[in-house]
Simulated assay, not measured.
Amino acid sequence: MKKSILTLILFSICINVFATETKLMVRAKAKDAKFVGSSLGGAHVIIRNTLNGEILAEGNTVGSTGNTNLIMKSAHERYTQLSDDKTAGFLAVVDIDVPTFVRVEVFSPINKKNAQVHASTELWLIPGKDILGDGVVVEISGFVIDILKPNTHQYIALESVPKSGLQIEANIVMMCGCPIQKDGIWDSNLMEVKAMVHKDGESFGEVTLDNPKQNTFEGRLQITEAGYYQITVYAYNSKTGNTGVEKINYIIRE
């Protein structure tokens, strides 16, 4: 028994002696936008050994969303680095003794479950061969959409609905938290934003949502009957192929 324990200890020591510290920078970048950083709570990163599922490193991206002019307004030649030392990322440090095939999993944005995307990629890590700079950049598609009006499971009296219609309001930003507005860098003029409405499980109609101010999209829904309603707000940019969706349910009562 003592010999077995000693053998395990010696084996563990040998592994630690021959293992080499290897660094891997991981960044989450919103589609058609900037990096996911501290301003949105970051993205959660997990690095796994694909052979046995062992987690080699885990943590959140921290830092800024990056340089807007460099990322969004400049032409990029080959080898152009889009990040700097302040740009959000997660620096993983793993100890490996042989080349290891890993899966990099990113959950982003970590604090917005309704919009969260799980994206991943795979690559070989070689002992002592660091991957730094921009590192591994995982693209996060979508929009963060929060329907503000009406509220989830809100009971609304039919008589209280204005003649102009029930207000629908949504807050929409890029997946890095970058702002959307008319004629802005992220131009709402290029985006189709609509509310698809169902009543009692049947299609009821669509409402186009306008963008009167930064990140805010609004429209009015004509309602004349009580029932169970569902609103699905979607955003679509045909130029980039980026899409996002949010749903809520509410009740109109007599």
Rank of each mutant, 00 (worst) to 15 (best):
I5K: 12
I5E: 15
I15Y: 11
N16Q: 14
T20A: 13
E21G: 10
T22P: 07
M25V: 15
R27W: 04
A28I: 06
K31D: 15
F35I: 06
V36K: 03
I46D: 10
L51H: 12
T68G: 07
I71E: 09
I71R: 00
A75W: 08
H76V: 08
E77Y: 12
R78Q: 08
D85T: 13
K86R: 13
F90T: 07
A92S: 12
V93W: 00
I96E: 13
T100D: 12
T100Y: 14
I110E: 14
K112H: 12
N114I: 14
A115D: 11
Q116M: 15
D130N: 15
L132C: 04
G133I: 09
G135Y: 09
V138A: 08
E139W: 08
I140L: 04
V144Y: 02
I156W: 03
P162H: 06
K163I: 09
K182H: 09
W186R: 04
W186V: 01
D187S: 10
A195S: 05
T208K: 13
D210C: 00
N215H: 01
R220V: 03
L221S: 04
Q222M: 13
A226H: 06
A226K: 14
G241N: 10
G241S: 07
T243Y: 15
G244Y: 10
K247S: 10
I251C: 12
